[in-house]
Design a protein around this nucleic acid. Structure first.
Length: 448
RNA sequence: GGCCACGUGGCGGAGUGGUUACGCAACGGUCUGCAAAACCGUGUACCCCGGUUCAAUUCCGGGCGUGGCCUCCA
């Protein structure tokens, strides 16, 4: 079985060969913890969870290290903390916000059937590593100090821009943002900046007296280095991170370690739209994972996400989610799914996933297993892919009332009063309850 | 303006230089008091215009459309 992955850097799909098969290493950019994660945030979490599971299957669970960071130092966090907890000292307010949000994030992605990564490092716990990298970059002329900032010198790196396919000239022409006066070059970016009073602050590197805090990109270079090494196998994230975030990570890491690459495979998931439009709060089509979980089981949201190949744009629609619900109910209808325990990926599904994570094809293969009647392989594969429960609507109904109505209906049926029986069924339907009359009696379930 | 994706049947979505993917929905049937579920059956689509070819949805060129990045947004 050959695993093939598409690499954004080389723009080709090619066989995956880990640097060290006994320790396959993957880094994925995680959340900035200041608010509930939205459904767009869920996409990379789910996509790379599938990849994590696939790698564990192929190389053995103990041979895969998956690092997903938690960004807990950021302007948006500061703003949120000051807004929500105006009476607390800022640093305390920040900690409250980040801890609360991290907990919410974990609850949400757990519900989506995602395994926890091997390591979830926090930015604030890696300030030391960041400073080491910054000092190195300054020492080798790849960075410089200016007005208490440390800036990365983009022209110092000859092949900057390869990931996003931009030449240095192009970026010069396209520069239309106001340029900070202390930058030597418009493309230079911040590695370290001074903190305003009250903001999180650490002793600065490179002889800067004023306390400061890290820029956005350096944390990922520091944390991937600490937990995975100077060069590792896979680096993932949303396609919007290609520029500038990943481009700058590459610059920082490669210039620190003098390596030809930072990661051997760069993987990026496509963007998500909602009902054909860009998701935005002003359009009213902005959904958090938490909101969707109130209406839908997590596994349905997960399935819906995987119906589309990860590099394709996905149009998230209510109709699509409803369809996913029905499809997943059918796939999980066999009793072996409920009772079984095995988790292994059936060969045809494995083959589909091995082709750059072709999840739509994999789902087609699940249907093929079902049509063949191979329910054991089907159930075991579903579990291996993170589908552990049969979907059930999270909506609640008054069970006593349902039973009472059910009894009334059956009494009516017995007396051949079918008009009344149908009326009661309509009433139950309106409550969201579906009936199944069988020769052994009537069963019911909550519809979607 | 620059760079980059994508455009397949009612919908979702694989794939392929020539042979019905698959799923959902729909329709017909069996079953049922009627339904639901289940089972059986029914659907030949690939944005437009050129080119290459015996043959293109699949390759090449152009156009149109949608979206993304170029603004610390997954």
């Amino acid at each position: 079985m050959d695993l093939k992955l598409y690499d954004t850097l080389t723009r080709e799909k090619r066989p995956f060969t880990p640097l060290d098969p006994s320790r396959v290493r993957m880094y994925v950019c995680g959340p900035t913890v200041y608010d509930f994660a939205h459904i767009g945030n869920a996409r990379p979490v789910i996509v790379f969870d599938v990849l994590f599971r696939l790698l564990r299957h192929v190389y053995g669970a103990e041979h895969v290290t998956y690092v997903r960071n938690i960004t807990d130092v950021d302007d948006k966090i500061n703003a949120r903390a000051a807004e929500e907890y105006p009476n607390l000292p800022l640093n305390e307010a920040i900690r409250t916000v980040t801890e609360k949000t991290e907990k919410q994030f974990h609850e949400d992605v757990d519900a989506l059937g995602c395994l926890r990564p091997t390591v979830e490092p926090r930015a604030t716990e890696h300030i030391g590593e960041m400073k080491v990298l910054i000092e190195r970059l300054v020492a080798t002329g790849h960075a410089y100090v200016a007005e208490d900032h440390v800036l990365f010198s983009v022209p110092s790196m000859a092949d900057y821009g390869r990931l996003s396919n931009r030449s240095l000239d192009e970026m010069e022409a396209g520069a239309r943002v106001e340029i900070a006066p202390y930058k030597k070059d418009s493309k230079d970016f911040v590695l370290w900046k001074p903190s305003k009073p009250g903001e999180p602050a650490w002793p600065s590197p490179s002889g800067i007296a004023a306390p400061g805090r890290p820029g956005w990109h350096i944390e990922c270079s520091a944390m991937s280095w600490k937990h995975l090494g100077e060069v590792f196998d896979i680096h993932g994230g949303g396609i919007d991170l290609v520029f500038p975030h990943h481009e700058n990570e590459i610059a920082q890491s490669r210039c620190s370690f003098h390596t030809p690459v930072m990661a051997n495979y760069w993987m990026h998931n496509g963007f998500l739209q909602v009902e054909g439009e860009k998701m935005s709060k002003s359009l009213g089509n902005f959904f958090t994972i938490r909101e969707l979980l109130a209406d839908w089981p997590g596994e349905v949201l997960r399935f819906n996400m995987l119906k589309t190949h990860y590099r394709q744009p996905i149009d998230w629609t209510l109709k699509g989610v409803a369809e996913s619900f029905d499809t997943l109910v059918t796939l999980t209808s066999d009793p072996t799914f409920i009772s079984g325990k095995e988790t292994t990926i059936a060969p045809p599904v494995l083959e589909a996933l091995s082709d750059d994570l072709n999840t739509p094809k994999a789902i087609a293969e699940l249907h093929a297993l079902q049509n063949k009647g191979d329910v054991v392989a089907l159930s075991s594969t579903l579990r291996a892919l993170g589908f552990s429960r049969r979907p059930q609507s999270p909506r609640q109904v008054d069970e006593q009332k349902v039973v009472a109505l059910l009894d009334a209906r059956n009494a009516a049926r017995k007396g051949k009063n079918f008009k009344e029986a149908d009326r009661i069924r309509d009433e139950l339907t309106a409550m969201g309850v579906l009936l199944h009359d069988t020769k052994d009696g009537t069963t019911w379930e909550i519809g979607r």
